[in-house]
Design a protein around this nucleic acid. Structure first.
Lengths: 207, 207, 207, 207
DNA sequence: GGTTAATCGAGACGGTACGTCAGGTCTTAAC
DNA sequence: GTTAAGACCTGACGTACCGTCTCGATTAACC
């Protein structure tokens, strides 16, 4: 939890599942429609057909609500897709596997249903450290771990120099994509991510 | 300009320089002290000893004020340091030069006077595309251009493969640092940036 | 009601009686102390220890607030004095009765607690017809009706010409006093009101 | 003058007659169109094509401007009509003369060009004693003096009891009309004013 | 007729209050 | 005991005017 309410924790067992779901949906749709700053707790409560207090009872802030709603969105997607986050593909060809995964990421980043809340939460996290850390821990880091796993496998297969730290290595192609998406520092395309993988694997200096 | 006020543009020649400076200082100090969301236009006006309307006359939003204040901060620093943004060092050793510059960047990112407004503006830009683009165009891109210049020079010197696109290449070491700083995805240190340069220049795959 | 707010009427049953009373008192005291134009809604809210919105929720304007406060003042006085507005005295001597009542009115007009809000509301009503009409209907006309009743009684007793319209007749002594008070067209005294009654009852022309 | 500005009196000889007239017209038309409270000094200046300071240089308040504008209106009307305020007609029949004059007053009170500023100034005067007194001294009292003169003439002709004070007597028919107009306490008509004259001259009590 | 000083139109300035919106707390009635 | 509803106090929003001030540019009085 980002915010630990000091008040006596309400009784979770009596919580209305109906309200919880309605709040998630209201929060996500409002952020998508009007943007994060114009999304208000009152607005979420109204659209969800819920009293304001019901939100304040269970969450500490607008950011908290949205974070949980977004996590829930991911869990629902995972459930639909077979419940466990799939590991990265491992065909033996590291470059090809990375390019494929990054191309999928490009698609996701440009999906409007994903983009609005993801941007909103990232922005909030930049300026609100606890939320930022929670966002990373619950959402980003698990994803990055999949890259770490794939890179380690590549290391065992001799496709990656043994001394390389996979946690840092992955940033060479993930972070540039993230920055372009977040900060509008450049266009995002399959070509671009393919190039990133090539540069990162084979280096910039002449061989 | 991020915001084009529809009303007839006020007369710039009669603008109070005193007020402008006071507003910059108030905005920067308030953001540093209380954070961006708790910084209000009323607060800036009060601390600057200025009427609210004087802010609304010249800027369209809190973000606009802070962006200009931050740009001004940079210009003042540049002026103090001899007026032109220095090109990156070019000792002939590309790796060493990049490591030195990134170490300096690390220092800057951790300087509290810089950090608060930079985070605030970046966060706002993530969620507010016009402002984000202006932030990049006026602040980030000029910095990145220096890397492009240095990398081209390295290309001419045969220290960089000829086919490499410098604008993409620089992201291999700049973006990871940016992401760690922005999203708290990992610690920032000289070691880390040195490693980034090594990985990027010599690649991850066995040579 | 002077102002019918278009928005959904708030729930009267949950209204805070405490706030309502505090607002009345604040409004009356501020008008008495600083005058009507310098009395602001913000000032009333602050002195009443109330949010501005609580005022805007229940009233449409400063004038509305003051009118209700003033009506309430009258009701409270009436309650203290036995709840029904006393009819005018009827000793059988019309001239004496009218003189006595007008002398009491003179005293009231010069009472500072009454004067400030009464002037303020009258002035507002001169320029704001709906409020003026409501002021008259709720405050002035009930008072004048007492004169009508007394004059009718005098008519039955043969002390007033039968053809006389009491509603007009009463204006002969009431309006001059009102005008002197409102417009500073002349001094106000017992002598003056006594004279008015004499002139009005017995006429200006030689008998 | 209602307000004596403490600052060094500006040089009257260099005053712009053009601006003065334009300000009068702007003030009167704005009050007629939008009402006194919504009439602002900025609005008057804008419509008059005049700097705000030009108003503040010569007048102390919105009320001052309007009062002078209204006085000027009267002077212009007087000038057009032969320059001296005509005395009341004196045909020898007091009742008829008074009825005629009051009928003319009824017409004037209902003339929209006159009504808006007259109401505005009266209302302001109710709540702003100095302005009220000036309004009376410069506008109302001169008019009432004409009644005094006519009543004295009637006294000499034996049509009015000798002991009657004309200054008070006139109020018996003037004040009721004034109150009905100002406070909406009743309709205004020729019948009504005729009745007032009859009641006042011949009294209410049986003869 | 040229000089000069005050007035002029304009409008930026530091302020105050406006009326609105949302935040977060609290109370009430229904379930 | 949680819920929907919503009144409450608080405080920021962005706007409108206030009355003061500073600018050139007239413009009228005086030399």
């Amino acid at each position: 939890m980002v915010t630990q309410p000091a008040r006596p924790a309400p009784d979770t067992s009596r919580r209305s599942e109906r309200s919880r779901r309605a709040i998630y949906e209201a929060a996500l749709s409002l952020v998508a429609e009007t943007g994060y700053p114009k999304t208000t707790i009152e607005g979420i409560a109204a659209r969800a057909g819920v009293g304001k207090q019901t939100i304040y009872r269970w969450w500490g802030s607008k950011a908290d609500v949205l974070l949980e709603a977004f996590l829930d969105l991911g869990e629902q997607a995972a459930e639909a897709a077979g419940h466990t986050p799939d590991p990265l593909p491992d065909t033996g060809d590291l470059a090809a596997d990375l390019k494929a995964v990054l191309r999928a990421t490009v698609d996701e980043l440009l999906d409007p249903r994903f983009e609005a809340p993801a941007r909103a939460l990232t922005a909030e996290g930049v300026v609100n450290e606890p939320l930022g850390r929670e966002f990373v821990a619950k959402l980003l880091e698990p994803q990055l771990q999949l890259y770490v796993d794939r890179l380690r496998s590549a290391q065992r297969a001799g496709q990656l120099r043994p001394g390389i730290d996979p946690r840092i290595a992955l940033e060479l192609f993930v972070s540039p994509l993230a920055q372009r998406w977040l900060q509008y520092t450049g266009p995002i395309s399959y070509d671009y991510t393919d190039t990133l993988v090539d540069y990162a694997l084979y280096g910039l200096a002449p061989r």
